[in-house]
Design a protein around this nucleic acid. Structure first.
Lengths: 231, 231
DNA sequence: AATAACTGTTAAGAAAAGTTAAACCCTGTG
DNA sequence: CACAGGGTTTAACTTTTCTTAACAGTTATT
């Protein structure tokens, strides 16, 4: 069972605020909209939230001040600032009060959602800190968090499953990646169909990786797969 | 006793640079801030560092160039790039110098710290992975990692079990490989059927190895097998 | 020489993996 | 709300790998 993520949204622009609130709630995030910083902080104290989205320029109390006060109560809650474009200093000041991310107006709602998701992921499992995000092997460069595989300066978009699998293989480069381990980490369940699904992804990765003969994705029967890089 | 991680930080934005330096030092990482690439490289040559954080766009010398020069001196030191958002081609060409990670501005300091920790953890654990895996005997070359047996430049793919067995035989070249030892290492169980299975693999290996008369796989009755290489 | 344990070899059968394509399932869009 | 497109899973079929069986030949032992 996963717990709900409740969002505190502070935004004085009624129009934008309502749109964001509607969008976030449609995506499954109960959202409370506050028209200024002061009310936002009062609301924060009264209710329980899991995430804060704060506009910086607001009447009564600006976003930074709200963030500082919130930080004194909860020093772990993720805070994302909404900032007008072209305000570098905002960014710097924001880091000092412990911002987790920034979004410069104008932005798409989808982008906001992605950031929120990313931050939640990050903050709820500190196990993910193990992830190195750039791997160089053979003639390839793999950027895990952009999900691209680069060969000869040519970018190839990867899907998330492809990326997850390739990342695990890279982390175990020249060593066997155990089937079961991979299945549990990526599919959270070691079952027949997931195993077959993984085999499909192995085939896909092999197609991407066949440009460089020094890179091989070989099978170790009954055990798993190994990304072999020679030279 | 754990050794200190000293960070070389190259960032031309004084404001940002100082904040990062202050933050990193507060977190226990002595940091030297350099205002441009040229000074960064000079500093690197003079001092001893364990980690590099390089802004890409800097006066005098950009981050990529610094990284290249640093790589010539130390090819293992972790390098993390700071990049302004929306510079695609810089990314593409940048990671071929062997970067370990990158962060797109704006980023949170927490995130930077997490990445640094992750990379350090990784490079510590990743220093002991190399097992010798290429065996030359007679006219054969056996690459265990790739599971191939090469004769006359012709590659012959081996199965996992064939490779495991041949590896043990190679490691005991001209010495007897004990049946029981091999069975326990490869099949994890010394039983009748596994023993018979192993005999089947001995037959297979003999077929592969019959091209060179100086290589023989002989049986030592009741004890095991021996890979005999004359000359 | 007879017997029993051990080894050599080949083939059949079962399990795992390779591959391709269709089905399914979201999510964004009109 | 239907539709399209992309990503993922399921299905179907093929090939490879490993084990087991069957039978033949060897070696040690009495």
């Amino acid at each position: 069972m996963k717990k709900e993520t409740r969002i505190l949204l502070a935004e004085d622009d009624k129009n934008l605020g309502n749109i964001l609130k509607a969008y976030l709630e449609a995506k499954g995030y109960p959202t409370v909209l506050c028209p200024n910083g002061k009310i936002a902080f009062e609301t924060f104290k009264r209710d329980k939230f899991d995430f804060c989205v704060l506009d910086i320029m607001m009447p009564e109390m600006d976003g930074f001040t709200v963030a500082e006060k919130i930080r004194k109560i909860d020093k772990d809650i993720p805070i994302l600032f909404l900032t007008a474009k072209g305000m570098q200093e905002d960014r710097i000041h924001g880091f000092e009060v412990g911002a987790d991310d920034y979004l410069t107006k104008p932005f798409s709602m989808e982008e906001l959602l992605l950031r929120i998701k990313a931050i939640m992921r990050r903050s709820e499992s500190n196990e993910k800190t193990n992830t190195k995000s750039v791997f160089n092997f053979g003639k390839y460069t793999f950027e895990y968090n952009r999900q691209v595989l680069i060969f000869n300066g040519k970018e190839n978009k990867l899907t998330s499953k492809e990326s997850e699998l390739l990342k695990l293989l890279c982390e175990n480069m020249n060593n066997v990646l155990d089937r079961t381990v991979a299945l549990n980490k990526i599919w959270f369940d070691d079952s027949y169909f997931n195993a077959r699904s993984m085999d499909v992804y192995v085939t896909k990765l092999r197609k991407y990786l066949k440009e460089d003969p020094n890179v091989e994705l070989i099978n170790v029967h009954g055990v798993g797969f190994k990304l072999v890089v020679t030279k």
